[in-house]
Design a protein around this nucleic acid. Structure first.
Lengths: 290, 290
DNA sequence: ACAATTGTGAAAAGAATATCACAGGGCGTC
DNA sequence: GACGCCCTGTGATATTCTTTTCACAATTGT
């Protein structure tokens, strides 16, 4: 069984299409903590993959093994083969690709961005920002620019579920002055501005400031001029081997913020989410499985 | 048991002097093929070390374990810690915050997602996908759903700079059938579909498929049903400590793809980018400094 | 020769595994 | 919207494999 040149992980990958939903879920769980999870008792594997015991038994036979112990034996064989060879290191991210492959270089750069971003962030400022954005008594305006409006909308979509009373403004559109008419003292603007910094965004921030609104700014390490207007400034590192900048780190911050706010306001959010679920079910917009 | 900082191998080494001859022989055998040999049945270990079964049983208890299964559990735990790789060492990302702070927990999860995503990705498929998306002779349709349309648009915005002949389609809108009218043989659809998978997206993919278009799918580890229609399937891990899934890893893949394509087509892209720069200068949409 | 160590063989206790029948649910089909 | 198929989980059971622990003999080293 273990004689074939490909690893068990590869073999599972290959047959992924033949597998059913629960089996795929199981396969992914095996691959996720590979190979350790497959070396424990069948029952623990089933539990950690959230599938039933028979599903595991059925699958290993589907994969061509006589039984679970047979499968484990193969895993152990592979493990000892790996250990014998030169110390297998995790120096590349996409193991199947050479380290110069763009996937590895890019991922490397992004991880680096995340590292430095997190090293410089002020958790207190972050928490304050979350509190501001979560505050239902303030109207929430989310502002993005030419590229960053995608991030803005991502935040908007989730905040929409969490709380009422919010607006998505696109600074590059010529409709934004209308929104400002209603904005006032105590409202909150979440502004996204990374280079190249946009004049419209700056103007919008200035006006919001004049009207006594709070401003939370997502920007890059060079800091948009909006930072002079901002009450809280969350900066991310965005350099990657590309002609453009990376939005991934900012996305990570945004998602962290969503998660933090969702925790903060869980009691009231839950109800809204459940209602939303029901609505989705009714409209049959989504499918449940497969 | 597995809480101590030292590995089991080290612990055995340390106590080597306390061991008797047969036990030492056993210990050496365990270390020789570490950790695979310890993960098999007790009897096989005894045999491969040329000691008796009771010797093994006696020794693991001497090492402080309740029994052989307990010893194995510890080994597995260590194995999975090793497999996690070098970055697992990074206990906290945002050093200024405690490790339980959402910033750290979330970042940890995302890094984990990135690692498993990269471990499972097929670089050849990725390159093929890039080539398809870069091919100017094919019309490019980019399709997103309720949440994923933000990612779709992000890709669209950048591809717009790189090449002509592309369309952004939102599967949740009711205008998408119009776009399909023009789609045909050889065109390319980039489809985003993560759970909860959307019926509209599936239908759209089916129709595109029927018309002989190529489909590149961005999805999550549970794989949207669209994968049956897709020529290339790029999956990302999206689990985070939140009520929602994370788009960060998918964003990373998208940006990697943009970067790869930009490199592929640099000669023709440069001109387009320069033209764009000029246009932006003229419209004074952006500011040059500060 | 004595004491400690180790192996033998066996038996009992304990786990883990394989398998079954059945029920519930999703999904496609008509 | 109803029917039926396929997948999946539950719970129970039989079976097989492991582990644990005996008592006792063999071996080794001192």
């Amino acid at each position: 069984m273990g004689t074939s040149s490909q690893t068990i992980a590869e073999r599972i990958q290959k047959r992924m299409d033949d597998l059913t939903r629960a089996e795929r879920q199981l396969a992914l769980s095996v691959l996720e903590n590979y190979p350790a999870s497959g070396l424990g008792p069948l029952a623990s594997l089933a539990k950690s993959a959230n599938v039933s015991v028979p599903t595991v038994a059925r699958m290993v036979q589907k994969l061509g093994y006589k039984g679970y112990p047979d499968f484990q034996a193969d895993l152990r064989e592979e493990l000892s083969a790996i250990a014998k060879g030169p110390i297998a290191k995790h120096e590349t991210w996409a193991g199947a690709a050479p380290s110069e492959h763009i996937l590895n270089r890019f991922t490397e750069a992004v991880i680096d961005n995340i590292r430095t971003t997190m090293a410089h962030i002020d958790p207190v400022a972050f928490d304050d920002a979350c509190a501001l954005v979560a505050d239902r008594s303030r109207h929430l305006y989310i502002v993005g620019g030419r590229v960053t409006h995608t991030l803005a909308e991502y935040l908007f979509l989730h905040m929409q579920v969490i709380r009422p009373n919010l607006t998505h403004v696109q600074s590059t559109s010529n409709t934004w002055p209308h929104y400002l008419l209603n904005a006032g003292e105590g409202d909150v603007f979440v502004v996204f501005d990374v280079r190249r910094y946009e004049n419209n965004t700056l103007k919008l921030a200035e006006l919001a400031r004049e009207r006594g609104a709070k401003i939370v700014l997502f920007t890059d390490q060079w800091r948009s001029p909006v930072h002079r207007m901002a009450d809280i400034c969350l900066t991310s590192q965005i350099i990657v081997p590309s002609a453009w900048d990376s939005a991934t780190t900012t996305m990570l911050l945004v998602e962290s913020m969503i998660s933090a706010i969702q925790t903060l306001t869980w009691d009231s959010t839950r109800d809204r989410m459940e209602e939303l679920e029901e609505l989705f079910d009714k409209t049959k917009l989504f499918r449940k499985f497969t």
